[in-house]
Amino acid sequence: MTMGALRRSAFRLRTYQPSRWMWLAWIVPVLLVVAAIVVLAANGMRALPSVDDFTRSYPGVSTHPAATPVGVPAWLAWQHGLNAFFILFVIRTGWQVRTTKRPSIFWTRTNTGWLRTKNPPIRITLDLWQHIVFDTLWLVNGIVFYVLLFATGQWLKIVPTNWDVIPNAVSASLQYASLNWPTDNGWAHYNALQLLSYFTVVFVAAPIALVTGLRMSPGFSARFRRLDRVFPLPVARKLHFAVFVFFVAFIVVHVLLVLTTGARANLNHMYAARNDDGWLGVWIFVGSILLMATIWIGARPVVVRAIAARGGRIIHRQR
């Protein structure tokens, strides 16, 4: 090999930048191996007489109040679809805020007079502006959800009311892990593991995301310095990211189970508020995916800048 070829090879090695998606080349096989081990272990445990007796005593569905409503109302189906849309872009914009090292486009509110004096505008990145917009939409949708949830009694389907939810959740976990799905009817009530998962999402993770997000917001942080001692920003950031990871994991598992445990019936419940074998829920779901994909692709910087400019001033950092 000539000296010139050696220099070119050395240059290529120095300038080689591995793709940020290269981690998938090893993490996916590792996850598959771990999943296989979990399935084998769960089936081995269920073959034990004591574990078999346990799953018979606790089939996976906890005791629920007699007043628990049956069915999925139309408002809940719409709320679920809107929430899926908003949370997707909350996650996307949140990841952009976290991973963009040197943002070059900023946004600031345009206000004059009394409002400018009492509440001076703060410059934020365009990614953060997007994140706040989708957070606000998600929050408004969540408030409507909370009101309707308690007004219609649907809260009884996702709030534990009996301590037998714990052993039943363990039993349901074993059934899922062994790929022997729990035999329950989501139209009437959720199994114990679903109940605990939905309770955690609605009443634990979502409020933590809201509180930590507010604590991290530039305007809030600048005006409430006294909170630095009782609720430091680094703590808020760590909690916010932990909730981000939880939501991503929950969505992946949730979608996987919806599609593998009777997709048509599940989608009819969730998107069409119907308990039949029709295809309406499937088509609504497909339509929502196409809509989200279209907006995902269409949300290019030039489009986002044009929308943001209608409510504020766009500032470009000089490179």
Rank of each mutant, 00 (worst) to 15 (best):
A209K: 03
R225E: 13
L40H: 13
L193G: 02
A10D: 07
P120Q: 12
F203N: 08
A41C: 09
R274P: 07
D135C: 12
M22I: 07
I91S: 00
V72N: 08
R274A: 15
R102M: 10
D184Y: 14
L31H: 06
A263G: 08
A35F: 13
F203D: 08
G142R: 00
F199S: 14
G262P: 05
L291N: 06
D164P: 01
T63V: 11
R215W: 01
H240P: 13
I314D: 02
L233Q: 08
A293Q: 14
V204P: 02
V245G: 05
S288C: 10
L259C: 04
A25S: 15
S57Q: 14
S173Y: 15
V28I: 15
I158Q: 05
W26E: 07
L214R: 02
P232A: 07
G278E: 05
V245P: 02
V38G: 05
D164W: 01
V235I: 15
I105H: 05
A36T: 03
T93S: 15
V61P: 00
T112A: 04
H240Y: 13
W75E: 04
V140Y: 04
F89D: 01
N83R: 06
N180R: 15
K157Q: 11
K238Q: 10
R116V: 00
W155I: 12
A10Q: 12
S173C: 14
M270K: 01
S9F: 13
V230R: 12
T110Q: 07
V38N: 10
A41Q: 09
R229C: 00
I143L: 15
R46G: 02
L115G: 01
G71E: 10
L13T: 08
V252I: 15
R14E: 11
G94Y: 00
R225S: 14
P69K: 09
L149A: 05
A151G: 08
L195G: 02
L13D: 13
W187M: 06
L195R: 13
V258G: 08
F231A: 10
V202S: 02
